[in-house]
Simulated scan of single mutants.
Amino acid sequence: MEQPLDGVTVVALEQAVAAPLATRHLADLGARVIKVERTGRGDFARDYDRVVHGTGAHFVWLNRGKESLAVDLKSPDGVAVVRTLIANADVFVQNLAPGAAARLGLGVDDLRAAHPALVTVSLTGYGVGGPYERRKAYDMLIQAEAGLVSITGTPATPSKTGIPTSDIAAGMYCVQSVLAALLRRARTGVGASVDVSMLEATVEWMGYPLYTSLYTGVQPARMGLSHTAIAPYDSYPTTDGRILIGVQNDSGWRTLVTDVLGVPELADDPRFATNVDRVRHRAECDAAVAARSATWSTAELDAKLAAAGVPAADVRTLDEVIAHPQLAARDRWREVRTEHATVKALLPPVTFADVEARMGDVPALGAHTAALLREAGLTPAQADDLLARGVAEQAA
């Protein structure tokens, strides 16, 4: 069975997280992704660390299934190679600083004028135009500018999220835009020029806190694991750890206290009878739940909550997540190769009934350079000349 994006070629001038995540998802769906990297060091995410058998964890996560072309884009010969590959591609994705691609001779307007059917996606921190256009835009900075830091953490201490949320949000909207543009092109034959902003992607994800502030004028409080509008909704002690419990309606509260915690008198307690009451008396509500949850082990209470249909979850460490019984039961782990070793990788969360995602190798820097130079129309002698001059680099 064909992959959904078989036959689609993507050229990506990408680095760090957001754009590489987008193109990795496209590669998982069957697209051919040609990753253009600098000679010498390549994508700087390669060097964030060396924890995956000598390869960076970010790079392994973000770059499987791609072909690596290492060329010097300050050289006209290097740019010419990339332009030729783009001319034969369906999609061009880049997340360089605003204006950098145009200065290299790979500006969106010129590419679209030459290739009207091309889909181009420019992923930037703040979008094109506006006073922030030229600002540095790392994930943490965008989380702060988008207000995410203001609602994340404890009442005493704001915090960024533990994963690069702004990068991930922008990367997912980049995927969405590519798929939508390709679908429209299939109907009209016309490509697209798309601008994806990390700031706007993250502000979109702010969702109900943003609307709460917009229509009340009140800054939502930082709640840790709790919830501004729901109670009980937090982690509660057990004899050997903690467990998350989230009751989202009044019938769930009645089930929790009657069938699980064994304190049915709390079901109609006027402090707790409705969610509005429970939020108003949050401290007392949490204390009542904690007094009973602390009488069982985590496993015992988890089983009781599951049997009663009360939403709950273990507070797992990452080693426990790796061994998660649900992932094991659904057979979600596969193996992919890196330049140094074979490593474990998770299947993407989108599962087609008739075909499994293409889990390709994580390329060494310049692993495909020689082949791609030939594909760009260079003779063997011309390709050897670029390699000899350092304009292009081929992995050993």
Rank of each mutant, 00 (worst) to 15 (best):
T9F: 05
R103N: 06
D28T: 10
A364R: 14
L387S: 12
V175R: 03
Q3F: 07
R358K: 15
S297A: 00
R184V: 12
G377D: 08
A367Y: 02
E145R: 08
T216C: 12
I151T: 14
A70S: 10
G377E: 12
G130A: 01
L13T: 05
S197H: 10
A329L: 15
Y208F: 13
G171R: 04
M172H: 05
P116R: 09
E375Q: 10
D49C: 02
R358P: 03
R242N: 05
K304T: 05
G390D: 07
S75A: 14
I243A: 08
V8I: 15
T39P: 07
A353M: 01
T84K: 11
A31Y: 12
M206L: 15
D268F: 01
L118T: 01
R222D: 03
A392F: 03
A137K: 03
D6G: 06
M223A: 06
S226Y: 05
Q326E: 14
V52E: 01
L62E: 10
I168L: 12
P264N: 07
L13V: 14
R282K: 08
V194K: 04
V263M: 14
A396M: 05
S166W: 03
T154Q: 10
S235N: 13
D319F: 08
I34V: 04
L214N: 07
V260C: 09
I142G: 04
L183R: 14
